[in-house]
Nucleic acid binder design. Sequence first.
RNA 1: GGAGAGAUGGCCGAGUGGUCGAAGGCGGUUGAUUCGAAAUCAACUGUGCCCUUGUGGCACCGGGGGUUCGAAUCCCUCUCUCUCCGCCA
Length: 423
Amino acid sequence: MLDVRFIREHPEVVQEAARKKHLDFDVQQLLEVDARRRQLLARVEQLKALRNKMSKEIPALQGEAREEAIARMRQVAAESKALEESLREVEAQFTELMLHVPNIPDPDVPEGTSDADNVVVRTWGEIPQFDFPLRDHVELGELLDIIDIPRAVKMAGSRTYFLKNAGVLLELAVLQFALHHMVRKGFTPLIVPHLVRDEAMIGTAYFPVGKEQAYRIPEDKLNLIGTSEVPITAYHADEILREDELPKYYVGISSCYRREAGTYGKDTRGLFRIHQFQKVEQVVLCVNDPEVSAREHEHIVRNAEEILQALRLPYRVVLVCGAELGLPQVKKYDIETWMPSRQAYGETHSASKFHDFQARRLKLRYRDKSGALRFVHTLNNTVIASPRILIPLLELNQRPDGSVAIPEVLQPYMGGMQEIVPP
RNA sequence: GGAGAGAUGGCCGAGUGGUCGAAGGCGGUUGAUUCGAAAUCAACUGUGCCCUUGUGGCACCGGGGGUUCGAAUCCCUCUCUCUCCGCCA
């Protein structure tokens, strides 16, 4: 959410943001509704002022004068009730439109219409050459008996999977390694609710745009989270923090649930795009200062790079173009890890900067040194998401016989296991 | 699932129809006192919105609706929290 005063003063900036993000949004429509809303509000408030004034005078009146005043106020009350009715309707329209206003992208966000327009910022690691025919992670998973997709599909439909045997240990190891890394860096670990109310989804801007991506439990009006970003960012909603508490660094772990609506036929093979996965996520709340928040953005990207480097997985960092930015983001870096079976880098991490867009929706504020209330800035990035990360992990560490070497840093989390071999 | 209790400012907590944006306390800020601190004393201390920006107006006591000239206060409804019982990881 943006400050409506900012929108009124800079409508062209907001319209330009919608253009750059290739979102369909009409600022003029919002401004018209806003104008109507304010007009009605002024009239309603005038009548209320009159009512309040008379209410104070009536107790002092007596006899006929009193009866007269009460009769007049009865009329005023009826009139103001009708006006309030119209105001309510306009307010509802206004709120709905406000939830669709896009955040303003940074000037250095590249123009573009697809991920082909993302700009590579840096690349790390050599793409290894293999002198034997490679198996992809699905073949390896089957051969090693660590991934079972057909049986999952039998009971749960497409985009589901079982992990099995060392596959389970490997996933838990990579998650634990990532979590420990972040805790060592001073991040506060959280295990979060996987089911949240609409307010948390709206507050983090996953609703109303994107609602079709979430699984919903209608009986309880709860939603399955698509990322622990939602409960972590909403953790301090409606609170007033002290400036000296900031920045707050959180690392959460959760399963993530995504309907993947509208992706039929896309990435259908293997563990790339699935309905449920596990993710360690980092979230930062910092002061309302674009420079600080830009610094934190680089910080959380570096944190994720450290993980990939420790796992010795080649990757590149890309600056995401306008059309690939969502409604709420100011700027986003994706980290893409090399996946031999795709013969391409595949997205494994996504680092977003929001300024106060989420904080406004969540009423997540702090009192600054001068005593004023300000909205925090929020940021988040993946630390590691599994099983997607198992794709490069398995494919890049395979040997001609189909066995897979386990990266050194993960071995302590797997009881010292050094390789996964076919049964 | 059954029964009951409750929801008031940053926090605790009073308030059962008009003088209540709301007592009191805690916390916070400033000042006095002190070598300094503690303690004590004094003053100040909510948020959001609107406009013709003024010693202006409106709203907010969980959400919504109603009664009334007037509602934190009365009525209806929803949500949430807590306690007990049942079931259960």
